[in-house]
Design a protein around this nucleic acid. Sequence first.
DNA 1: GTCTATAGGGCGATAGAC
DNA 2: GTCTATCGCCCTATAGAC
Lengths: 194, 194
Amino acid sequence: MLVGMPRWESDAQGRLERAALELFETQGFERTTVAQIARTAGLTERSFYRYFPDKREVLFAGNELEAHLAAGVEAADPGLTPIEALLNALGTADEVFQSREFLLRRVKVIAASPALAERDLIKLADIAEALVGALDHRGVEPGKARFIIDVAIAVSRRATSRWLADPDATLSDLVAQTAAELREAVAPPTRTAG
Amino acid sequence: MLVGMPRWESDAQGRLERAALELFETQGFERTTVAQIARTAGLTERSFYRYFPDKREVLFAGNELEAHLAAGVEAADPGLTPIEALLNALGTADEVFQSREFLLRRVKVIAASPALAERDLIKLADIAEALVGALDHRGVEPGKARFIIDVAIAVSRRATSRWLADPDATLSDLVAQTAAELREAVAPPTRTAG
DNA sequence: GTCTATAGGGCGATAGAC
DNA sequence: GTCTATCGCCCTATAGAC
């Protein structure tokens, strides 16, 4: 036996994640079995469930984004309004994103499966809930915090969608542009005399 | 055989829905089986699936809210801004709600189960998607429409949550109040000289 | 790893209503 | 006869228990 020959191939979780994305792309989520993902990654079905509590989670592992955003809001200048603090943090989300290539593949797979779309939404809701705690430290009451977070996430979704489509723009610029769009949309209309 | 004696008890779907809510309340969603719901409603498990494509859906049947909101937006005064049209419609959502009593039971059951919370979120997303079509008829581009809808839904969620807690306020008043809160939250801060 | 309950789909049988 | 609601039985996959 050669020295340095590992007993198991490394990064079982990563292999499962890559195998799953690949299979979901080619066959669709519903028509892919957990056993198939595991086999493709050189593992057994049982081992899959050691890494992921259910089949959907294989596309949603990791808390980096939530942690990054919460940290960003906690660290924000106390002089900023809550929405400013949130949007600044959301504008740096790309710091924890994978390659745009990978994100686009993932977004497409998720959009193609209602089951994955559900999971995606609750993951976003989990992030929102985590940010309530961060705003709480700034003295924002939870109900109001959740409301402002929902608005900020709406801005972020629009900005991120644009950013995925336009390789040249920066995310934080698009967040700022979308925030301006928000201010305009909620302002009372200028009813010019007709 | 007596005249008027139906072969089956009527309203099988309603019986399933009531049995499910009751069982989810007492046992929780996960610990309730489809067979149990069906038995309680006097049906078999197989028949359950004739009415609902899956176990979660038993709490989410019906499209009344989506239809009501889409119709409200379609019928809105063309002079209103998109967000005004949306918020007006959302302020009348109570017209298609069940009793507050029933809503509170349902909200509690959904909040207690991650699986049901997921389904709840995607139902809201489905409504949002339907409203994109309604705003399209008003000449709003889809990406922008979805953004404004997400913001309006954030307002509506906060207003509805307050309305459920406060039996005396009207939903449309609370929507208006929350819209004012939104305008204040997104306005640049008045930085008084320090 | 093995075992098992449950979800959920396919297909056909049955039995009134018409 | 057709239509429609229900049930029966078979199957696989998920996911949790042991």
